[in-house]
Write a protein that binds this DNA or RNA. Sequence first.
DNA 1: TCATGTATATAGGATATCCGATATATATAA
DNA 2: TTATATATATCGGATATCCTATATACATGA
Lengths: 104, 104
Amino acid sequence: MIMPRYGDEECCDMRGLLGFLILFLLSKKPMHGQEIADELAKRRGDKPSPGTIYPALKSLKYAGFLREEEKVGKTITYSLTPRGMKAFHIAKRRFTRTFLGVLS
Amino acid sequence: MIMPRYGDEECCDMRGLLGFLILFLLSKKPMHGQEIADELAKRRGDKPSPGTIYPALKSLKYAGFLREEEKVGKTITYSLTPRGMKAFHIAKRRFTRTFLGVLS
DNA sequence: TCATGTATATAGGATATCCGATATATATAA
DNA sequence: TTATATATATCGGATATCCTATATACATGA
């Protein structure tokens, strides 16, 4: 018996969507890591730590979904590749169908 | 180096939302396990296995978010408790803000 | 030059989520 | 009664996700 999967008032922590959210943000406009983290902080309520955001970016880059568009100092601006756009659209379609009706 | 977090065309598997989806479905109407699994199959594309759906229901019940409304044979119909509704609305608000703009 | 602030990098691991395999219980039909 | 279909139950573990801690690099201002 391990159990407690859901806490006091919260029903779930909505993991598994970080990559999707990053692709979504980059589909709007190129951004760098901290910009993305700040935007996620506004949306979710908590800011992903460096140890969260950079490995995610690395994996997405490794998958060919995004590329470094510009690098000024340590600041790396990322943008979606065509492959990344395609992946985003596939995921978005699935997302839309899955959560149809949730947003009243 | 372990890496590959994202596969070929897929950007993420959207875990962490099973509990949220179950609360959402039950907020519409009382359902039993298989009904929920079938509805999720239609939405997500793949049907959660018994080993997925029943432990999830158990945890949600344990958290006080749902209760057995009726039991006919082995078929247990679940419905949200007031506490479950509250948890769902909190989660929904967060969900809405997080994914604002994703559904074009 | 030194201090400070900002941005990125990564190893290692804690935790959560989910699935495969298996078992049990009930109803129905042959 | 036997066979079949349906629904639920649970263990154990594979895997994914994310965070803590730590380190590095660059720019700027004192």
